[in-house]
Design a binder for these strands. Structure first.
Lengths: 360, 360
DNA sequence: CGTATTTGGTAAACCGTTTAATCATTATAA
DNA sequence: TTATAATGATTAAACGGTTTACCAAATACG
């Protein structure tokens, strides 16, 4: 019995612009002013073709007269979507400051914005995983889908997503039954090795990251195969773990050079390790590329700005982020076929590589 | 008449773990199983002291028996908060890949996670501002508050926040009537200048960024004052705009050195410009620090990894992000007093600075 | 011309919580 | 002992949209 109209202020002429008091203008006010039902307003909002020109115009007019903006919380509650995506990353040291992640995330954000989605940031800290908060993200209806970047096969909790049927997509790694978008690191490594061998290098060391990452395994395998085919089968591989960082790239290089002074080239699995190698070479008084050629991977911004500028493989991280985001949204919108995309990579020649020193 | 109990399955013994079908378990099921009202469950959830031991235990038990997780959309709809904060940035080239922003955001994310808030990322693209989407963020109830980083006084749309009474906090700039958290760039600049003058440098160039940023103005003013007091009032300032980037830092340095070959030291307003300067010096065959001392600002990660390692000012960006986030949340939770915090900075001596070359 | 179908719109249920206002109890005070 | 207050839980009304089922009028069909 409280549904009758008398108590409502009804259509009073002076209600223009923002409402005076605290109360925000809602869909009901719009409906009242436009003299239609709330259902109609909702349908106009959602471009439902059922509502035709005349009515639509009337409603639209009132909407921007009152500056009405639909409450997205309410929308999410009744509709199926939150229009929020999460980007999940491991907790490396200040992940966000890393150009690798940064490029990916930039791509993700730009694409998301273009498609009307918002992006949430999450770090998979130990307690995050322990308390199953990655699951809460879906269960508590924070997000519609999640993008996982920077993870290795050791991060088994990622398996939860596939198991529960939650929409998750992994970037630059494959596994756990998840969708994935990756750069063609195998091809990148091959291009590097071909190039180095062409330059006459035979003793080539590799600074690798965790082999628990699919793309890194690809690079390592390619490296091994190249060496094998160059030496005619003899095992001349020189692998050192640089753990993806400058610091470990530095120490790994140091070890490598001490143990194998005949190394003339270093292939680093990413640019950060390559920078570490550069640093180490400089400290030892080795000239790059005179005494030692160094090549990295990813073509992060800084690669062009170090001395000497770094020869590297361009992995289209920004585009990878864009594509990953787009495909995830496809899935949310109902795409059935799993996503498995590979983006091409190419060599970028700069100043850190040259012909091998004449072998003694 | 649809409120009676018969149709409900009621408390059936076998309902354990996740519900079998599609439907998620809601607060009503919990209430039914625990034989209390939904209000009671809600109060248990929110640690309302009104609910005592006995009942609380009973409810809690059912909650984790059924693995219930409250729907945060529904929570937000009826409560006042979304528990979502936005980080707003200008659209520089791939902002996220920038170590400066990265460190800030890392700090913000970590603190937010610790305080149970989620972080959303937004880029203030031209159309974003034109369509007033920064306002939508509040009007459509996406967020409770917003952190603005990387903006200058030219970004006048930031004024909207204060005007509308939306909770916004600016990092490393002050203005628009917004709360702010900044590093003490003035002190940083002073430490640099004192140090360079001590080393005997007199012709010191400065690579600055936009003077529309408060903190940059502070650095420029400090620089000018230092020069003036060192030369006894004569205007020996050598200011070139490096626009905060490596590229412009490079070209600015190039111009500076061409025009003033007697410059023995360069003070760059941030590390990126300093890296550009380093690059330029190397290209010109100038040894750093032998021929030219270079100092940066911010102490980004790469500063330690270039050749030579860069002398710089440490601005605690990570902590700044943490504090900014914390204070914003204070405000959301009701803090009345505006926020205006300044974090201390200090010089980090590395290898890019040394005594000035004997003046001719 | 009478009936079937389409069209444009409405009423009301629903999404899953929080929170006033209310109501039995039981403890406290007069 | 009775009125009063405190305690612990409940009822029902928000919160602000979407959506299903339904309806009247208009159009199509035989």
């Amino acid at each position: 019995m409280a549904e009758t109209s008398p108590p409502q202020p009804a259509a009073n002429g002076r209600a223009k612009g923002k409402p005076r008091g605290g109360k925000r203008v809602g869909i009901r006010e719009i409906a009242a002013q436009a003299e239609v039902s709330v259902a109609t307003v909702s349908m106009v909002l959602n471009n439902n073709p059922k509502i035709t020109g005349e009515t639509r115009a009337k409603v639209t007019k009132v909407i921007d007269q009152l500056g009405y903006r639909p409450n997205r919380i309410a929308q999410s509650l009744s509709s199926k979507y939150t229009n929020l995506l999460a980007v999940l990353m491991p907790t490396l040291r200040h992940t966000m400051a890393d150009p690798y992640f940064g490029e990916l995330i930039s791509g993700i954000c730009d694409k998301a914005a273009r498609l009307g989605q918002k992006i949430m940031l999450e770090h998979a800290k130990p307690d995050f995983v322990r308390e199953k908060r990655h699951i809460d993200l879906f269960d508590r209806r924070y997000i519609d889908g999640i993008l996982c970047i920077g993870f290795s096969d050791k991060h088994t909790f990622l398996g939860d997503f596939a198991e529960r049927g939650d929409l998750a997509l992994m970037v630059n790694n494959v596994g756990f039954g998840l969708d994935h978008v990756v750069c063609d690191y195998a091809s990148g490594a091959e291009q590097i090795m071909t190039y180095l061998l062409q330059l006459g290098h035979r003793r080539i060391g590799m600074l690798h990251g965790s082999p628990d990452v699919y793309t890194m395994r690809q690079m390592m395998d390619t490296y091994k195969k190249s060496i094998a085919s160059a030496t005619g089968g003899e095992d001349d591989t020189l692998l050192v773990d640089g753990r993806f960082t400058e610091e470990h790239g530095y120490t790994a290089t140091s070890q490598l050079l001490s143990k194998h002074p005949d190394v003339t080239a270093i292939f680093a699995g990413n640019d950060k390790m390559a920078l570490g190698a550069l640093h180490c070479a400089a400290e030892r008084g080795l000239s790059v590329p005179g005494d030692l050629s160094v090549v990295g991977c990813d073509n992060i911004q800084y690669a062009a700005f170090v001395n000497p500028a770094l020869t590297t493989v361009n992995t289209p991280l920004y585009d990878t982020g864009m594509l990953a985001c787009e495909r995830l949204i496809d899935r949310i919108r109902g795409r059935k076929r799993p996503v498995a995309e590979v983006l091409p990579t190419h060599l970028v020649l700069r100043d850190s590589t040259s012909l091998a020193k004449q072998t003694q």
